[in-house]
Structure formats: C-alpha cells, structure tokens
Computed example of a mutant assay.
Amino acid sequence: MTRDDLILQTITPTTHDLGGFKVHRTLPSRPRTMVGPFIFFDQMGPADLPKGSGIDVRPHPHINLATVTYLFRGAIGHRDSVGSDVVIEPGAVNLMTAGRGIVHSERSPGQEREKGPALFGIQTWLGLPERDEEIDPGFEHVAAGDLPVIEDTGVRARVIMGELWGRRAPTTIYAETIYADIALAAGGAIPIDSRADERALYVAEGDASIDGMTLDPLTLYVLRPGLIATLRSEHGARVMLCGGEAFAQVRHVWWNFVSSRRDRIEQAKQDWKAGRFPKVPGDEHEFIPIPEIPKTVSYP
C-alpha cells in the first residue's frame, strides 16, 4: 500500500513561542480548515516552567463552537462566565460550549506555580452544527475515571469523545465526533476505527507508523475515508485520533470566533470591543483585547 493509498492530506504545524512554552497549531490551516467537527488543533508544550511562574490566559470570548481541553501532564485552572471554576488534570476532559457567547480564562493553579508547572496537552475547538450555534453556553468536566479505556498488550487508548472500539465516552457531542488518546508501548499496535466520515492522526510524542508508513511528530495526517489500517510504535508513542462527520457548510474562523456566518463574527467583534460579553466571576479585572491581526484565521 502506498502513502497516497493511506493519507489524504498532510498538515504541518505553525509554531508560536509564547514565552516559556511553544504551541504547535495544525488546524485551521491553508490546506484544510476542518477534520469532521474539529476546526482548531493545538499542542501545548511539552514544557516545564520555572517555579513561581505559570500560564495566565486572561479572559477572552468565544462564539458558535465548543472547546475541548485534554492534558498529558500538568494542570490548568478554568473559569468561565457561566460560573465554572474547575482544575483539569491529565486524562480528564473539559468541554466548554460557547453557543451564543461565553468568556473564560485559563491559569496555572497556585500549587502548580509553587513547584514549577508542567504543561503538555492538546486543546481543540469543535464547530457546532447550524442548529446548535446559538444555544445557551455551558461547561462540562468529565473525570479521567469516567472515560472508557481500551487496554491490550502494548496499548492503552482512552476514548475522549464519541464511540471507538465498541466503547462510548459520556462526553456530550453535538455532531458525530470521535476523539481518542492512544498510548503505545514499544511494539504496541491498535487498529484504527474506519467508520467516521473524516479522521486524522497526530503524533504528540514518540514514534509511530500506520501500515508501515512512518508518521512525523507534530503533524496532522488526514486518513482516506473508509481506510482500515493499524497504528504501531517501535519505541513508544502518544497519538491522538480525531474526526467525525463532515460539515456540509463552511465554518469561518477569526481570532476566537467561529461561525457559519461571517456577519455573526463581525457582530461578536463589536460586542467584545463594546464590553457586551458577560464577565468571568472571580476573574473580572483583566481581559485580552481584540487583535488587529489575529493569529487564528480560516482560509480564505
């Protein structure tokens, strides 16, 4: 089987140095905006920050999307304008549904700052179906112990969203979605579920291959529809599988705003500038100003 038989598209990251740690972004990109409902795909770290420091992502807004935060190492404190105040730790999932509008902040908890925070994880955004774009905002935390885990010789796969390998995660989904964290030991292997409309693999660390084709780290590989293949690692790896149903209507991205309508994004820009978004209880005094030229945009 050739590379073209396996891979529909290969997306290399844009890397941003945020001072102390790097973020590697593969979606949105010029080659492709979405894989299933996934419209944003960031790897944070890995990084070990100095004692007394931490991440401080000040309050900022979102519309018409859901954010999914998943950590391999470290901890992040999440607060939002619907009143959530939760610390996420490795193996758990934070799902924040923006709907018609939400504001949140992400900061290293105090105990993490004291010892020197670790940061390593994946943050993604999901486009919402048109029927759900303007729903009420909400937040959901699913503990690591509540997510199904598939274990076999040399492999441990956690289902974060949707149904994979016959197990379904309790995490809310709006469109058909698959999302999994696959930890492979040396010599480990697992078949890749073929049922989703669109699927992609991403090697966060280590070495991996699919049916003998080497996968580069920090690269998103969009698989051909219906492909039945096996993921393997020679020395050990952490691989994310993501995807789901294909969206018929394009989604536009500008800064932290996602929508099927450009005019809705323009409205959100004006609302943020005018202070019409709600405040974050306990984190009301700071905010991120709207940028002149955002780093996150869809193409065209």
Rank of each mutant, 00 (worst) to 15 (best):
G127W: 13
T230H: 11
S29R: 13
P129E: 12
A274L: 07
I102D: 04
K279A: 13
R264H: 08
V142T: 15
G244N: 08
G127N: 10
E130G: 12
P148I: 12
I135M: 11
H252M: 02
P170G: 11
V57A: 03
D216G: 05
W165E: 00
E286A: 14
G127V: 12
R3L: 14
D207M: 01
D263N: 05
P61N: 06
M1Y: 06
A204E: 14
I88L: 12
A186G: 14
M1F: 06
T12R: 11
A208P: 09
L227N: 05
S298G: 12
T10G: 04
P225T: 06
G19S: 09
I55C: 07
G91K: 09
M96L: 11
R232Y: 07
V82C: 06
R262P: 00
K269N: 02
R79Y: 09
D146Y: 11
G162A: 07
M213V: 13
L164Q: 14
T124I: 12
I122F: 13
E176I: 07
R168T: 05
D193R: 03
K295V: 15
R276P: 02
R58A: 05
A186H: 14
Q9H: 01
E106P: 11
L220I: 03
E89G: 04
I102V: 12
R195P: 01
H141V: 10
G45C: 13
V35M: 14
R232F: 03
T15Q: 05
K295I: 15
Y299R: 13
K269Q: 08
L241G: 04
G212S: 06
D48Q: 12
C242E: 07
D132T: 02
W272N: 11
I76H: 09
G54H: 10
L164M: 14
D216N: 10
K51E: 15
P300R: 14
D271E: 14
G83Y: 10
I11D: 09
H60Q: 07
R32P: 00
W125N: 05
V82N: 07
A157S: 06
F257Q: 00
L128I: 12
G226T: 08
R262K: 13
H104V: 01
P109N: 03
G77A: 09
A183Y: 08
V222K: 01
I228D: 15
H104W: 00
L126A: 14
V35N: 08
A200M: 14
F277S: 00
G36K: 13
D207C: 05
A92G: 15
G226R: 01
P28N: 09
K273W: 08
T296D: 05
G52E: 01
Q267F: 09
T230W: 11
E151R: 15
L128N: 06
G243A: 06
I265L: 04
P217F: 01
G83H: 07
I55E: 10
L201A: 04
R32G: 04
T124D: 01
P300V: 06
R232A: 07
H252C: 02
V159Q: 08
L128D: 03
E198G: 04
I173Y: 03
M213A: 15
D193A: 10
Y299W: 15
L147V: 00
G243W: 13
L49A: 06
G188T: 01
G188K: 01
V23C: 01
A229C: 10
M240N: 06
E140C: 03
F38T: 03
